[in-house]
Amino acid sequence: MSPRPGPIDVHAHWLPQELFGLAPGSPLPALADRDGELYLGELPLSIATEAMSDVNRVLADTDTAGLGSRVLSAPPFAFPVASADGVDDFVGEFNEALEKVCRDNTDRLLGLGLVSLHDPATARKQIEAMASSSVIRGIAVPPLLGATSFDTDPMREILTAAAQNNLAVLVHPMQLPRPEWTSYYLANLIGNPVESATAAAALTLGGVLDALPALRIVLVHGGGCAPSIVGRWQHGWDRRADVRSGNGRPPREAFADLWFDTLTHDVAALELLRAQSDPTHLMCGSDYPFDMGTHDPLWLPRAAGIDDTALESNARAFLGLDPPADYALDAASPSRISW
């Protein structure tokens, strides 16, 4: 299969209403539809319910945003972060529903499935099943599982299985609460960028990217605050043996292996990200349909001088898709991009 030509939004969320109860053992209350608006327990999310769950609404909003296609993944509050009875069933139901909506709209929608995070053996079987799908192109995971990240098991084992099965990985923060972040939405405004930076540190300083050279892993929200502090990591790596204990490359070098979406909310921040990363690893992201996302995900990369063709080609490479036919270099068009 091949999505419709045009920029691909790799960071968009979807959850069918039959799974609004969330994964078994979830620390969060169930989702609910109240007069067309989505609530998490008693908390209003400022999201139209149909934008999260109705595929026709998702497709209409995709067209309005000027996108060729969208990659759907579960919202972070649906991640199966607890080891509880019934988690495997929840994961299976989500992946089956995601496969169906993407297969019904093969030129418009792709998916990133869920895995049983606490059980690497089961996660590997789920990944192997997804690897046979043409529309499920990877998995979505949180940056932290309890007090651990990707440099330790079980998350490191899950990344290994994804890399071995040629599946992409999207990392989305969970907005974990801390007592000093109870006001002003700081659990999101500060917490999410810190979670993403923690994942980036685990991947680079932990030697994960060196051990798994085939791994394609994207940090959303432009990698959080990681681009602004990778220089600090490099200084620590140069000066301290404990920072080098992960037996990886210098963090500046490893950082170039990471992928990022362009949802930085600021042109200067996106320009910094581009300077610190590999520009061929930058992709369009919207965080649809959340209020911290954007309905116009192409404005920011365009403002930073990243054109739609680059966004599409980068996303296709990340997702393991063939390039569009008109990207092939031929004698009649020697200036075309060569793949």
Rank of each mutant, 00 (worst) to 15 (best):
D63I: 14
G305L: 06
S183K: 14
R316L: 10
F290V: 04
P24W: 00
P251T: 09
V171H: 05
I47N: 00
T198I: 15
I337Q: 10
C102G: 07
L59N: 06
S338E: 14
E180T: 15
L59H: 06
P120D: 00
R302C: 12
G222A: 01
A121P: 11
S73P: 12
S116V: 00
L321F: 09
V135P: 05
A187C: 12
F255T: 01
L321Q: 07
R316I: 09
A201T: 11
T280K: 10
P154E: 03
L109A: 01
N56H: 12
S132I: 06
G224D: 08
L19A: 02
T280S: 08
R239I: 15
A332D: 13
D107L: 08
R239M: 13
V81R: 07
D308E: 13
D33P: 01
V81K: 05
H11S: 02
R57M: 10
W339Q: 09
S116K: 03
L167K: 10
P323L: 11
T264A: 05
A310E: 14
D33F: 01
D296R: 10
A268E: 15
L219A: 04
T182I: 12
V141M: 10
A315V: 02
F20H: 08
L31I: 05
S228Q: 13
A65P: 04
L19F: 02
D278R: 08
S149V: 08
G146E: 04
A147D: 15
L273K: 02
N105R: 03
D107K: 07
G224M: 08
P44N: 05
D210E: 14
G41E: 08
V171W: 04
P250D: 11
A60M: 11
D85W: 06
D307Y: 04
G92H: 06
V87R: 00
V115W: 00
F77C: 07
H281M: 05
F90T: 00
G86M: 01
L144M: 14
A315M: 03
L112I: 03
S46E: 14
E180A: 12
H221I: 08
D296H: 12
L112A: 03
K125T: 13
N56L: 12
V10C: 03
I306C: 01
A269K: 06
E96K: 15
A211N: 12
P251H: 09
P227G: 07
